[in-house]
Design a protein around this nucleic acid. Structure first.
Lengths: 144, 144
DNA sequence: TTGCATTGGTTGCACGTGCATGTAGTGTAC
DNA sequence: GTACACTACATGCACGTGCAACCAATGCAA
């Protein structure tokens, strides 16, 4: 099965890689959602946004453009808009107008948001270590 | 930042790996859903189920237990039940009673299902080659 | 100025998903 | 036989998502 059809082996490799990626993604994102949700009332994407905002390291009051967030978090702009809405309602971020271009908005962490992120971060790292690091990611945390 | 805290570097590696996985998953699954949807009226998970059924290589009329399908496709049991319902309504699979254990069901490909899978398979492989193979997966197919 | 294309963000809607629950069938103990 | 725990699948419901449509602001051209 290795020399007859030049396309078949490459396909098999690709499919195997894709399935492995699917399995690791499913196990990790599921575990992440569960742990972050139970312990910190955060979804996976919520945490990801808080992390980006925290990494930006902007002084309190300053924020990131929603557009810039959408580039790093893999969400549609509508989903991001609603996600920011949720975080804002929870008091974790603030929307502020962008003076330079009044179409845009800045999204900034509040103190509560910074605190929540600091609390949730160890959980996030633990789950990653448990599912990506170990080989136990096979069937440990499927949605089923 | 490399010798002071023994946990920090490992964390950074894990996070980097996780973000890479997220990016590749988002790009590939999004492209897959779009291409399979446009060209073959199939979702990613639908195709995955058809593929598992096809790989089982059972004689026409025989099928897989829904439970066995749930193990390989990363879906909850309820999601799988509805997915099978959709495929059945589309005439691509058939539900048949399991005589031995009448709680269970067999899911079997119909001829139409086999045909649809054969048609969709090259598209699936092309997308995989285009997003997993190339380094162009960075920003080519985000939902945004 | 007016007009038009483009960009940034929000909202109506349909859809797929997971959780909890319901229903039918199985196996075991009494 | 009856009762009870358990399994396999289906369904009600709430929620997050993407798409398309929308509105406001900007930039450019005539």
């Amino acid at each position: 099965m290795t020399g007859l059809d030049p396309a078949a082996p490459a396909d098999a490799d690709l499919v195997a890689e894709w399935r492995s990626l699917l399995a690791r993604h499913a196990a990790t994102s599921c575990a992440l959602d569960r742990e972050l949700g139970e312990r910190h009332h955060l979804g996976m994407s919520e945490f990801e946004v808080l992390e980006r905002l925290s990494e930006a390291g902007l002084p309190a009051g300053q924020g990131l453009r929603a557009q810039d967030l959408a580039l790093t978090v893999h969400l549609s702009q509508s989903a991001l808009s609603r996600l920011i809405g949720r975080l804002e309602k929870a008091g974790l971020v603030e929307r502020t107008l962008c003076e330079a271009d009044r179409r845009g908005i800045f999204v900034a962490l509040t103190d509560a948001g910074r605190t929540r992120y600091r609390e949730a971060r160890p959980t996030h790292r633990d789950v990653l270590a448990g599912t990506l690091g170990d080989a136990s990611a096979e069937n440990s945390a499927d949605p089923a």
